[in-house]
Write a protein that binds this DNA or RNA. Sequence first.
DNA 1: GGCGATTGGTTTCATATGAAACTATATTGC
DNA 2: GCAATATAGTTTCATATGAAACCAATCGCC
Lengths: 160, 160
Amino acid sequence: MRNSAAAAKREARLDLDRFLPYRLSVLSNRVSGAIAKAYSDRFGLSIPEWRVMAVLGGTPSLAAREVAERTAMDKVQVSRAVDSLMRARRVARTADAADGRILRLSLTPKGRAIYDEVVPLALHLEDVFLSALSPDERRQFDALLGKLARQAHLLGGETK
Amino acid sequence: MRNSAAAAKREARLDLDRFLPYRLSVLSNRVSGAIAKAYSDRFGLSIPEWRVMAVLGGTPSLAAREVAERTAMDKVQVSRAVDSLMRARRVARTADAADGRILRLSLTPKGRAIYDEVVPLALHLEDVFLSALSPDERRQFDALLGKLARQAHLLGGETK
DNA sequence: GGCGATTGGTTTCATATGAAACTATATTGC
DNA sequence: GCAATATAGTTTCATATGAAACCAATCGCC
């Protein structure tokens, strides 16, 4: 009895099915994957591309750096996603009047049209997943996710 | 007023900060990243390598395919992780007596020693994250995560 | 007003990843 | 018992990714 702590330590097991990082990772990949498949099939958008469009749809004229901050992507990823979105004429950019380093990004009409189709689709699929929870449970989950995100933010610093 | 549904559709916005897949992805990456950094720094283990070791620590003599199933990894990933773990003498394998295609995997003593160090470390870090929640909230979160995982499983089929 | 340190953004390079092809063994149906 | 098919695992190839180097342009400050 007295050695139970030491014994527990030596015999420690880790059950992946109960381990938070593993559970989060599997769930996240399943949810993101299912939604990504929908917009990838229809519009050939990758996840980074869609994230850039999502943020520009809500707030146009952002600098690439601001897009990176809001999407938790790094600037290389943003640069590449913007590059391919521009080649597809879904995003356009203009020089900033005041600061020559900055290029301001916005959806083109073509990009906006896609955004307007993808948003309801994404929200619908989110809703299908969340239909496993009652309205009350959704609120709980929302709150708990928020607490954990804040905690992770405090501890981690880094994102990705 | 009467057109509000159509209007809502046309004007649909997506706020990434409230969008489930995005929130899960950021949280998952932060949590996994922080824990992965710990065992990567100390033992040079990648996430796939650690997952393979984690499952073999709890259940030895698994075939690679079984490891893949339990870790939600694909067989290529498992094959490569096993390859590097074997080169580091952390995992060994033996031919299956009954089926010549199968190679049964287990931790070596060296691998076991690492497992015995990483498990308490991983559990400790998990606990640090979860310390943002009360015991009651943890139980809630556990249950809600379970419901969503089942839902995702039903809908998705695929994992990763 | 001009030089060193910063910042926005892109490119390079080395590594990680997944899909599909491949090898070898087992199983099934005849 | 043997062809057709399926399964375990590895390799190949093409693409995705991140860290670090890089090229402006701006800011700080003397």
